[in-house]
Simulated assay, not measured.
Amino acid sequence: MDYTHSRYYNPALTGLTQITHSVDQLLKVITYLPENEQQQLVDCCFYAAEAHKADIRSSGEPFICHPIKVAEILAREVQFDLTVLQAGVLHDVVEDTAVSKSDITEIFGQEIADLVDGVTKLKKEKGMSRQELQAQTFKKLAIAMEEDPRVVMIKFADRVHNMQTISALKVDRQIAIAKETLEVYAPIAERLGMSVFKNTLEELAFRTLHPLRSKLINSFIDQTHARREDEFLAVQEKLTQIFQTVGINAHVRKRRRSACTIHNKMKAGKANKKSLQNAGLPLIVITETRDECYRVLGIIHELYKPIASKLKDYIALNKSNGYQSIHTTVLSKNRALNFQIRTRDMHTVAESGIIALWR
């Protein structure tokens, strides 16, 4: 796409090469949008770039690269529509530039202006203790969630990118932001069933607060996965053949353990290196229908010895955040196999929670 034809393109923008690169990356993940909407989003990027032209991030890059990345995260993880992506690009302009809400309303419409205003209202007030800030942030997110959940999605994407680029800040600021991420944002994401954000935020915060532990645990996870690859492939092949024989359209996948979760279990004395090495193999089976979930459960229990106390049916009795899946643990010749069985739609909700409504 030739950006020079964009409505708000300015060849004199400082850091134009970095800005156009950010737009390039965004375009790669919005192929699901019609071409005319892609052009509208590019126009929005250069409008925001002009508004933020005097702003530089701590990393030294043009500030506009951050909100463009926020839109990229929203597009990649959720495939939000044009309205939300434009609001993601514009989410800082009212707070940080001379652009007003009425300006956005006039150019981009009331809905986008309201989303930007909603994100702006989530900004922190100065002169408060960390505990007060956490309580205030939690309250504001809860109110925003009721008024328009999309505002919270934009805020989560904003926090994800800030955590990804946090190394540019002073160490004390890194620690404060990482703690708030763990104590406020990740729990809210979990409550809303948004594991796609919850897991990412936890891992990024853990890496910031405990870089050495994060490196060691992730190295351990990688080594464990490598050692168990043959076991996984054997189980996958066996089950896939049976599914095909009986006419079930299902796929077997691995689940990666979270370094942050492992650390918390070790800290609480609920796990050690030996127990983790001998832990069950975490697997997911994705089916097309609810009926197939129960048929898959029966097949797995015929192949392997089930542990009755580990069987949980969250399809019949789904969790309050909408999560649905059958959990079962069975014993193979080498180790336990921990299965989660759910449909493709259930998996979308399991990964995304309430944002699955916009997928």
Results as ranks from 00 to 15, higher is better:
G193N: 07
Q18T: 12
F197E: 06
I107C: 02
K28Y: 07
N199G: 06
K124W: 03
V89L: 11
T31C: 06
L74N: 12
E302P: 00
A186L: 03
T20M: 02
K155W: 07
I177C: 05
I217H: 04
M145L: 12
R191H: 08
N249C: 08
C260L: 04
T31N: 11
A205N: 04
V184H: 03
E61L: 11
N36Y: 10
H347P: 00
K270Y: 08
E125G: 11
F108N: 09
I217P: 00
E288G: 02
V23T: 02
Q164F: 05
I341A: 02
E111F: 04
P34V: 15
R359E: 11
R295I: 05
R295G: 02
I221P: 06
A48G: 14
D103G: 05
A259S: 13
N318Q: 11
Y294M: 05
I104V: 14
L209W: 08
A189P: 00
F156Q: 06
N338M: 12
R257H: 09
A308G: 04
A49V: 01
S275L: 13
L85K: 11
T137R: 10
Y304K: 08
E203F: 06
Q244T: 12
I262Y: 13
K319G: 02
A157V: 13
I307T: 09
F220H: 10
S22D: 03
S6R: 00
L13I: 01
G15S: 07
G127E: 15
Q18F: 12
I19Y: 01
E35V: 15
V285S: 02
V116E: 10
R253C: 10
E202F: 05
N36D: 14
N249Y: 08
D24H: 08
F156R: 06
P282I: 15
G88Q: 13
E351C: 05
S309M: 14
L337Q: 04
A268Q: 12
F339Y: 15
T208G: 09
S352M: 13
